[in-house]
Design a protein around this nucleic acid. Structure first.
Lengths: 255, 255
DNA sequence: GAGTGGTCTAGACCACCAT
DNA sequence: TGGTGGTCTAGACCACTCA
């Protein structure tokens, strides 16, 4: 038959929808403005609700929309630039009030973290358990009342020799005590990695997201005295955060 | 009625599924092994295919699974650590064969990039167009034949004054020429940001993914002579890449 | 051509938030 | 209590890969 194929390789509907809605966001909507609900939007575009949701999910992933159950879908503000630079060799949170210590436990860290912590602990000496227990400090990072990240900072006891382990020290106070002692160590370097993950239930709750929400997982190894003095696993909200590594230093400051 | 509520707040089925399958991956499967197809898995777990797919999507997002249309679902290898460190003040790809120049065009860059390029171009002098045209160099980064990232490197003409603009220079050759000239500039610093994005159609094709696939967008501003000499926008496959910022430097090398 | 994952539908019910 | 987004179902068809 001589029917000419107008769209030989048609793009998926949800992809086209995403483009259309994305353009509408630029031209017709303002930050914070509420969109029509999903059922109406689906009807308006003549698609099933599931298809519309696929488009909205993409836009939310890109940080352009914010959806909250029971409330609605709103236009998200531009992503917040969050400094996670490694240029200044400082302990995390030093001279920076954006981190807040929340709790501290001594539950054994996950196997992956243990590998990082004990990689250089097993070789030099014979004993392995010298650095136990490992303090697990829980911290939150926020700006303008908005939760950005939840962190689990693992500190082996060997890194905080001066810590008084008084039993009366409860969670938050113990957390601050561990941090205070940690800052006394000379920080010699750090290496860091960033990868995509999905929020565990506890992280999700503190980040005001649903479990499984996309997060940027920043893993940092802090080095002091040739050893791994601490390991931090921080999960940043991927929808609202843009991680910045301001490496410019002197040049930027001079201008 | 006296029916006791066994699960007062039951977690979503797909979340539970994800956990179960994830544990199975650890204990019963090997990297590269192929899973039963989605219809069978859904039947085996007694859920709809869409629900099963929600769990698989999460596992793929976390880099634990790899799905390919027409082929099947396989167990993914651990993520590749990709160095994107800013510690060495070098131009991208110098002394590193993982980047390969593909093409070069002079199409105007997107507005967001233009803002970065011309921020310090408008103030000092009166003229603005001094740095036009802007070369858009296209490069790919790969290891072991596996595409990791696609980059768009924007270089204002002002940054490569020695470039001979012969019309016979085709795309790839022009790209290499621009890079060669760029490397002659003294690199004074760079700042960088990482955020979550979804792959544009062209990036997706070169990364062997579907459009919309999650990517880590690394934006870098290269500074030379107090100016922004180039801007790079690189999209890394979020499922297979873990970006590493090896800041340890001397200490790590010495050990 | 058989089998895979990708897209899409038209419903239903649930958890949550505001009023 | 009404409205929102979140979950789930049971189908259907399509695009792709490979033998």
């Amino acid at each position: 038959m001589g029917t000419t194929q107008l769209q030989s390789v048609p793009e998926p509907k949800y992809w086209h929808l995403k483009t259309v809605i994305g353009e509408a966001l630029d031209s017709e909507f303002q930050v914070g403005q509420i969109l029509p609900n999903e059922r109406e939007l689906a009807a308006r575009f003549g698609v099933a609700r599931a298809t519309l949701r696929q488009a909205l999910e993409q836009l939310e992933l890109e940080g352009r929309l914010q959806r909250r159950r029971g409330v609605g879908t709103t236009v998200a503000p531009p992503r917040v630039g969050v400094d996670v630079s490694t240029a200044q060799h400082r302990w995390p949170g030093t001279g920076d009030d954006s981190w807040q210590a929340v709790d501290c436990a001594t539950t054994p860290p996950p196997a992956a973290v243990l590998r990082l912590l004990e990689a250089d602990d097993t070789d030099p000496d014979t004993g392995t358990g010298a650095s136990r227990p490992v303090y697990a400090v829980r911290r939150l990072r926020a700006t303008h009342g908005q939760a950005l990240a939840a962190e689990q900072l693992y500190v082996p006891a060997a890194s905080v020799p001066g810590l008084v382990t008084d039993e009366s020290l409860t969670g938050p106070a113990l957390a601050r005590g561990v941090l205070r002692e940690l800052e006394r160590l000379p920080l010699e370097g750090q290496d860091r990695s960033v990868e995509l993950g999905s929020a565990r239930a506890d992280d999700a709750k503190e980040l005001d997201r649903l479990p499984g929400a996309p997060v940027l997982v920043v893993t940092t190894r802090y080095l002091s005295g040739g050893r791994t003095a601490a390991v931090s696993v921080a999960t940043y909200r991927a929808d609202t955060c843009r991680l910045t590594f301001g490496d410019v230093g002197d040049l930027q400051i001079a201008s």
